[in-house]
Design a protein around this nucleic acid. Structure first.
Lengths: 213, 213
DNA sequence: TAGAAGCCGAACCGTACGGTACGGTACGGA
DNA sequence: TCCGTACCGTACCGTACGGTTCGGCTTCTA
């Protein structure tokens, strides 16, 4: 693990959010070589303001990543999955949400930038993305899995390990292909299909339903 | 899919290989912000030569990626897996090799750079890495899977889909974590363990051995 | 109505880096 | 012995970009 989830800076002012939104849009369009000039132009603000508000380029990027990460983890699945149907439903919803996140242009752009920074050992965008992505979702899913186990519907020893398997079954080669620029068109229906398949496989491995005594 | 496997340029001269090796080393150390100056210094050659040989910075990077990719796909598993034990063994060897590749510093550095280029929509490093990594390994593994199916040991409809599941079970969250700078220390033993676990899960899903009628 | 604060836009500075030019050396062939 | 080729090392050029400065406009407060 890289960084313990970073201290949440309270939501920025609307004006700042507009700036961060501009950064995000530019990230999607231009990748990491977005310039401070471009940001200022896009956000109709002066570079001076950017530097006053965010310190330097890295600060701006970090703020953007944190802000966007906060957007994502909105919904919450309280995991009282009592029967296998509702458990399956929860898991599928989880998988579908997660897939549509990692398939979104924003997520791809963000991850690319964070990876670039990890390469340069600059700042800690990688850690931020990781703790708001992979680890955050793990912490959200584990209670569901544990509830499933408590209800006798799932069998596993380590919920972290079970989650990693779930992660692999859902994501497969999708994220790396998107990051590398492969344009696999994942529409809503495809995502639903993937989610269903992944959950079926996960239940085949860890399920304990009547059909899997 | 991005690019049909690129036309293989025959192995470069030893001198050029030395240069490419220097680039590779610098990629690992510095990430994408390796400079032409640094390469020239490291390889004890003049920048003029670099430009004469490789055209421009992009050409140098591309040549390096292609060269390194050629190194990787050396071994070959001819998949006459007759019994379940040898099939399992083949799959485990496959998984372990693949894991040690994606966990290597070189692979991480290369993927990071290719991802950066995909972000900038420059050149096609992403396509090259993809077709020499993810797709190349797919083409190598599928015959094994199909042999297993022919021998009645595996059950699946689409070998591409089966491979993707295998890929997910093996890689799980490892590659993305490494790319983002998470330092999960994967030693030989851990890799072997991961490979064994992944294959066991894969066989649980697609196996047809006596234990899984 | 004067001042202060916050911000925009534009000009500016320094530097890093891609790419080029050039002098100097080693070597192989006539 | 002389020339051509290939290369190294270094100096150089142009530009892009991070960061700073400054003049002027608006808004708020007294």
């Amino acid at each position: 693990m890289l960084s313990p989830s970073p201290s949440e800076p309270q939501t920025p002012s609307p004006r700042r959010q507009a700036v961060l939104g501009a950064v995000l849009a530019l990230m999607v369009e231009e990748g990491d070589q977005l310039t401070m000039d471009a940001v200022a132009r896009r956000a109709s603000c002066s570079k001076e303001t950017l530097y006053k508000w965010f310190g330097d380029r890295d600060g701006l990027l970090t703020a953007t990543v944190q802000w966007q990460a906060a957007q994502v983890r909105a919904d919450r699945y309280d995991g009282q999955a009592l029967d296998v149907a509702s458990l399956r439903e929860s898991l599928e919803a989880f998988a579908a949400t997660w897939l549509s996140v990692i398939a979104s242009e924003t997520s791809v752009a963000l991850n690319r930038i964070a990876i670039g920074h990890a390469a340069a050992r600059k700042s800690n965008l990688g850690g931020i993305v990781l703790s708001n992505g992979r680890f955050a979702i793990g912490e959200r899913l584990k209670p569901v899995l544990e509830a499933g186990r408590a209800a006798g519907l799932l069998a596993f020893e380590d919920s972290e390990e079970a989650f990693r398997t779930f992660f692999g079954l859902v994501g497969r080669d999708i994220q790396i292909r998107l990051l590398l620029g492969d344009a696999l068109g994942l529409d809503e229906a495809a995502i639903a299909g993937e989610a269903e398949r992944a959950v079926a496989q996960f239940l085949a491995l860890h399920g304990r339903a009547p059909s899997n005594p």
